[in-house]
Design a binder for these strands. Sequence first.
DNA 1: CCGTTAATGCAATGATGTATCATTCGGTAT
DNA 2: ATACCGAATGATACATCATTGCATTAACGG
Lengths: 189, 189
Amino acid sequence: MTPSVQIDRLHTIDLQNPGHGHGERHDHGACVVSALERARTAFGDKGMKLTPLRQRVFEEIAGSHDALGAYDILDRMARKSGERLAPISVYRAIDALLAAGVVHRIESKNAFYACHAPHQGQERHIALVCERCQTVIEVSGADIFAAMETASAACGFKLSLAVAEGAGLCPSCATLLPIVLATDLVTQP
Amino acid sequence: MTPSVQIDRLHTIDLQNPGHGHGERHDHGACVVSALERARTAFGDKGMKLTPLRQRVFEEIAGSHDALGAYDILDRMARKSGERLAPISVYRAIDALLAAGVVHRIESKNAFYACHAPHQGQERHIALVCERCQTVIEVSGADIFAAMETASAACGFKLSLAVAEGAGLCPSCATLLPIVLATDLVTQP
DNA sequence: CCGTTAATGCAATGATGTATCATTCGGTAT
DNA sequence: ATACCGAATGATACATCATTGCATTAACGG
């Protein structure tokens, strides 16, 4: 049989605590508040303004540990406020958030996520997207970007912009998935 | 003054030999023919068929050393044949070419390029896109993907798909650009 | 020759992103 | 005050990227 049943079952587990692993508890409200605090700081430091619109957009992005598309954000904001912004408004807000460095773009998904563990300007990170629960986690990318720089320089290419991102199974899903599959083998002969 | 004039001047130089550096000569026809030969082999090896449509699409992609968007390909084919395919036809052909491994996608540009130095399945490469002349070059990415694997494994993430790509100045543009800018400083006080 | 599968054609639509121009709002020089 | 300026937002339209669903044709093995 195909694994679709198992996947559905796993997904209900995910939904108990969306985007945050399976067993852990996570105070999402506090998490967004602290992200917002860092965002305020980042905008201040750069002489930029965290306007109400930008803040609303940031709250949507930070309020999920998934990467959201611009139109997802648009939908969520419309559901909350009752009125729908023009796409360009959200894109402009996103541009400011990107410039401030408080959100990042996942090129391979055309989607955006908030830094929850901020790399204050200095350290480079890469995004890893879980294909099961969609959570985005960031890991240090120093070695990766160094390797890209080395490979580029070796052929005379002057690298000014590097993209690196991955997809696969996050720690929670990687450990849980085999268990669920094995369980199914027993319970569904 | 802004560098726009310099950039335009440089661009005319680029156009003398689009996508292939500034001083070198490049037999583009032969280059496409050999790419096509490798494509035929790749399709054969994989038990896939290089159909006429797929070949036409491949020729468009391989006929440029830039990365082309699907609608660019569509436009070019329409200009040649007089009739315009539906987008889906091109996308399906691209899917086959991607599956055969003879073209690759640049996620950060939503565009496709042909391998001109084929890595027959085994070695991983990354694409570097020149921001001046748009040429795509590929360099070995073994170290980069190894670093991504290491970084992922370190945090328990099971990486199944990795994307790495860069943008900057290709060797030709990197050496030519400063010269042109310096020349302008002299000739346009 | 027939049935099956792969490939293509065709129409519509969804999804993502931008150009252009008008308006609002907060500061600030006069 | 008020007149102006620049940054941010609003509004409409459009451009670009990609897929769904279904009909048709071509290729291949019996």
